[in-house]
Write a protein that binds this DNA or RNA. Sequence first.
DNA 1: GGGTTTAATGTAATCGATTACAGCATGTCA
DNA 2: TGACATGCTGTAATCGATTACATTAAACCC
Lengths: 347, 347
Amino acid sequence: MRPKKMEDVARLAGVSTATVSRVLNNPELVSGDTRQKVADAIRQLDYRVNLAARSLRTNQTRTIAVVLPTIADPVINRMVEAVEDVAITAGYTLLLCSTRGDAAREQTYIELLTQQTVADGVLYISPRATPDNVLALDQEDMPLVLCNYLVERESVPCLLLDHVSSTYQTTAHLLALGHRRIALLNLAAPYYYPARMRLKGFLSAYTEAGIEPDPSLCIEIDQPTYVNDDWYAAIDGLLARADRPSAIVAFNDEVALEVYAVCRERGLRIPHDISVTGCDDILSSRYLEPPLTTVSVPAAEQGKRAVRALLKRLARPHSRIPHETRLSVELVVRGSITAVGQGVPEV
Amino acid sequence: MRPKKMEDVARLAGVSTATVSRVLNNPELVSGDTRQKVADAIRQLDYRVNLAARSLRTNQTRTIAVVLPTIADPVINRMVEAVEDVAITAGYTLLLCSTRGDAAREQTYIELLTQQTVADGVLYISPRATPDNVLALDQEDMPLVLCNYLVERESVPCLLLDHVSSTYQTTAHLLALGHRRIALLNLAAPYYYPARMRLKGFLSAYTEAGIEPDPSLCIEIDQPTYVNDDWYAAIDGLLARADRPSAIVAFNDEVALEVYAVCRERGLRIPHDISVTGCDDILSSRYLEPPLTTVSVPAAEQGKRAVRALLKRLARPHSRIPHETRLSVELVVRGSITAVGQGVPEV
DNA sequence: GGGTTTAATGTAATCGATTACAGCATGTCA
DNA sequence: TGACATGCTGTAATCGATTACATTAAACCC
């Protein structure tokens, strides 16, 4: 059965298509009487507008593209769910563009998106954003909001977690517990915004305490794709050292998991022999033995704010939106850290 | 700057729009010479087709809608990533529809999708599928593939994990280890396909061993939304019993995490006092203490096959596609289980 | 060479909505 | 009563592609 067109509705209701369209989009322009007739006809025929036709005519898609490196990440997960909640309420639909750290794929998506007929706006969730792509989108007048990355161009709103504070709080806490040899397991910094900030927070905690950090304990892993292989070697190397650190600040909870595994292999007890912290507070963190000290991040809140900013821009293209928003994070202390020398060896 | 239209390209290349369109869609109909000229013009103007216009004319969107209960689930995650990999290669884009177990929201999405101008096909990843919705889609001639749910209608391809085998393997293994009081922590069965199958597998392992299961150990939790609250109480109640089971088969790894937590609280040691198993083999399972015995499921493979089936149907609407495909799962034995009476109490 | 097929291209209708503009009836005011 | 505003509705152009059909030229065959 051929899907119904506006013309069918118009005929049944005894009006013109213009009136039907008005009932749908500007009901206040139509008399209550006609409105009722049209509404009845629509119901009777189970009519739905053809979105392709509408898009063609109005140049709007009511779609938001979400560009992200992967959805298989607990933090991004929470963000996207929040984004969808807000978007659907506003009548928008989500186009999923996961790049998997693959530049070619990202390029494909960017090209798809720069033709304005696919999405009305782009939410770019990518700590690893390639500025060129981001700026290209902005250049083409595609409304754009960035998450977890900061570009200089004032016109692009950027929503950030306070990554500096994340490592600062963690490191300061460990220093206060008497730790002096703290290792940072970080991602390589170029283009990776959070990593740069984490390093900054780590160092500033040291500086504030008036202590000199050991640069050889700042490990950077180059991990362009979202795979966890390289970490193991790095951690193992770290723990094999004679001057092994007394605490490890891991890039995130998943890396901390790997630290747990290496410690177990080497017979190191957490926290007695070594303190460990993570970041993100993923579900399993609190179930580990010992439960992982980590940093809880407001991912959902970030997602909500980001999409709200985007919706605002879509509604009023020249509305002022703050260029930089920084959401605070919170240290969650659990059993995986202890004061230096306070370890209670068992057995 | 106004986006380029096909007409602009045609003018620059000195041909008609029909020819430009042919270069794009049926290059073999155009002479090499003209093809080159058009290609040059396209490049020079940085022209992209207007997808809304194309959709309107061709009635195709090159979009696949993925309906799922949540993306914050490790198994669904892996499936969706695989789906996207295949889809993008075939030139398709993904529309994300996460229902969050909310019937109204699911309804909204279904209505959106039944107007054929949004997506060419639907991949319904939902163990909790409401058959009415599914059948409505099929009724409207929307190409449809189901994951983790089985409907009778032959026209709908269903891709299933072998949930029966999952609990069967686990339970049989535990029975072989001498366990006789094994608890099953299951989801409530109505409309929840995997749960029904899990129960079946659990019982058939007992039957095969010629042992009578204790019905009071088959716990069913009603969990319409994806929240983990009710499990705690159920687990705690189970472990408080005087005739506490010697093993627990948890619905999935996340539930098993909760079991670990309750055991810790109650001072029960795994596996010495009680054996625990999960399902899905999520990342953290192997990092637990002790590492969790679980069932590894080919989620990515399932996603790939599902989308391939859908693409096949899109290409040839009346191609024969197997109605039911069942992918086998594999028991992964780790330290969380042991033979009855073999527990080596420490200290 | 005349007729017929084949290849390459153009003309114009079409997809299904939105909306500028026009028209008409009614109400309001001096 | 006439001038004008207001409210409601219809007519028809338009968005940017695709494609059936027509046209022309070249190739081929006997």
